[in-house]
């Protein structure tokens, strides 16, 4: 059989963690994109990279240190942004560079774990072990359940923070919770596409779904479906083609986005020229 490789344990583990990460990223990503925080995922993943380097340095399971560092940094930067009123892109630049700075110091201070770090940079979903699968599944379920339960206040807060506040939504608490969930979702997906490509999974399926989805719920369902399909297809295709799964997943997402954009453009172009053609024909 052509798809015999799907019976391999590592492939099944990759698919399970991949699907969980794809759902998490698509859900949290829609709120991030709509709040104009598209690059926040990138900043969080760079902070997580610092956390992973710290984990290897102090010999602690790196996903734990990455979670602690990125959640703490996300909360810290949110507080800093609020108290100093620095802009969102400046806050992202601070997080991004400090995470990477921490990682570079720790890597230079000790030698021998750079190959492992490399797998976090570009993803290594085929190398996930059972511990990773259980942890990622547990965290994903927590993130997905919280997002579903808080869907309405989160939507209100994303649409207009001030109106949400007047409506009795605890905006500040919700903001901290949301940022923490985003940090955790990034950790979940790190194994899948790697730190450098994480933004693609957060942003691209949502940009595509926003072009075709009518209504918030439908847009989110489309985004999740696209993300999961691209992840499964990417993992499956990458094996016989001997490509990196992370790059394959991201390029499928990019192709879907470009394809949808072209179809939309052609659709609106034909709508625009049809009335003119009718006028010309009538003459």
């Amino acid at each position: 059989m052509v798809l015999d490789f799907l019976t391999y344990g590592f492939m099944q583990r990759a698919l399970v963690t991949g699907i969980a990460g794809a759902i998490c990223c698509a859900m949290i990503g829609l709120f991030l994109v709509l709040k104009r925080y598209s690059l926040f995922g990138d900043a969080l993943s760079h902070m997580a990279f610092g956390g992973i380097a710290l984990g290897y340095f102090i010999n602690v399971y790196p996903i734990w240190t990455a979670t602690v560092v990125s959640v703490a940094a996300a909360l810290g930067i949110t507080k800093l942004r609020k108290s100093t009123k620095i802009s969102g892109d400046a806050a992202i630049a601070v997080m991004l560079s400090s995470g990477l700075g921490l990682a570079v110091i720790l890597i230079s201070a000790s030698h021998g774990f750079t190959i492992d770090l490399f797998s976090f940079l570009f993803g290594s979903v085929l190398l996930t072990n059972m511990n990773d699968v259980l942890l990622i599944l547990g965290i994903s379920c927590g993130v997905i359940f919280t997002l579903i339960a808080l869907r309405k206040p989160l939507l209100h807060f994303t649409f207009d923070e001030e109106q949400a506040k007047v409506n009795g939504v605890p905006v500040e608490k919700l903001n901290y919770l949301f940022i923490s969930l985003a940090a955790v979702a990034v950790i979940v997906t790190m194994r899948l596409v790697g730190i450098l490509l994480i933004s693609a999974l957060i942003v691209i399926p949502n940009l595509t779904s926003m072009m075709i989805g009518k209504g918030f719920k439908k847009t989110m369902i489309i985004s999740i479906s696209l993300s999961v399909t691209a992840t499964v297809a990417g993992i499956i295709l990458s094996y016989p083609l001997n490509w990196a799964p992370s790059g394959t997943i991201v390029m499928i997402l990019v192709a879907t986005y470009v394809g949808t954009l072209l179809i939309k453009r052609l659709g609106s172009f034909s709508k625009k020229i049809t009335p003119q053609e009718n006028i010309i024909n009538s003459h």
């Binding site: 709509l34 309405k152 939507l155 649409f159 949400a164 779904s209 209504g215 918030f216």
Partner: peptide
């Protein structure tokens, strides 16, 4: 490009 419909927004 907010994808919410009129109904979604009023429901908030």
């Amino acid at each position: 490009n907010f994808p919410a419909t009129v109904f979604d927004v009023v429901a908030l």
